[in-house]
Amino acid sequence: MKVLIVGDFFIKPSIVQSYLKRELGEGLKFRTIEWKFFREDKVSYKGERSRLGVREYAGSPEDLAREVKDVEILVVHGAPVTKEVIEAAERLKVIGCTRGGPVNVDVKAATERGVPVIYTPGRNAEAVADFTIGLMIAEARNIARAHASLKSGRWELAYNRYENLGPELHGKTLGIIGFGRIGRKVAVRAKAFGMKILVYDP
């Protein structure tokens, strides 16, 4: 079975290939492309799906369509899998998107063709929850401000004063709006700090 992995600077194709080899075993013929188009300054971030039926993508469907003719499994991160690409992949059996949602895949066109689309919901939930708690600590304890002051060559004794040390998280109440994958993981971490949790999930 022929597999094309289109990775980029964020998700390296070699990472996906090693995982697929481990999980699916031998018998797969891999080809990988590092999609140079997918850079922060080149991504098309559109709130609504474009006329191509996809959003948050980079590069052109024409470039990808030229690569997929005999591909049976197509795995992408930021490349646009449009109707044109799906039609060009004559032997396509499944599309994998290594993102939390397949926004850069025309799921409607894939469904009409009978090609399932798989993706990775909650892929970065652990990292986002960690970062959220990290920012809470940094803000509460003036870590970023004190660090910036020290880097600029000033030793601010004011940050040693009790009133400027900032509050401890223990015993404080954390309000979480949205209790999905990330919100739940933030709550678990906050509870470990001894915080009280209030949740609103609209």
Rank of each mutant, 00 (worst) to 15 (best):
Glu90Leu: 07
Arg39Phe: 00
Leu92Tyr: 03
Tyr162Asp: 14
Gly171Ser: 12
Val128Ser: 09
Ile137Asp: 01
Thr111Asn: 06
Ala138Arg: 08
Thr98Ile: 11
Pro102Ile: 06
Arg49Trp: 03
Gly122Asp: 07
Gly166Asn: 01
Ala89Met: 11
Lys93Arg: 15
Arg66Thr: 14
Gly134Leu: 09
Glu156Thr: 14
Val117Thr: 10
Leu64His: 05
Ala125Gly: 09
Ala109His: 05
Thr98Cys: 08
Leu157Met: 08
Glu56Trp: 13
Phe131Asn: 13
Gly53Glu: 12
Val54Thr: 13
Lys46Ala: 10
Asp106Leu: 06
Lys93Leu: 08
Arg91Ala: 07
Gly122Ile: 14
Asp106Pro: 05
Leu135His: 12
Ser149Glu: 01
Pro121Lys: 15
Asp63Ile: 10
Tyr45Arg: 10
Gly153Thr: 14
Val103Cys: 10
Pro102Cys: 04
Arg49Gly: 13
Ile143Ala: 06
Arg123Trp: 11
Ser60Trp: 10
Arg91Pro: 00
Glu48Asn: 08
Gly78His: 12
Trp155Cys: 01
Val94Asp: 02
Glu84Cys: 12
Arg55Asn: 06
Val54Glu: 03
Thr120Phe: 10
Ala65Pro: 13
Val103Glu: 14
Leu169Met: 12
Glu72Ile: 15
Arg49Val: 13
Leu169Gly: 10
Pro102Arg: 11
Gly96Thr: 09
Tyr45Gly: 01
Leu64Val: 15
Gly134Ile: 11
Gly59Trp: 06
Arg154Met: 01
Ala58Pro: 14
Arg66Val: 14
Asp106Asn: 15
Val81Asp: 01
Met136Asp: 06
Asp130Pro: 00
Ser50Tyr: 02
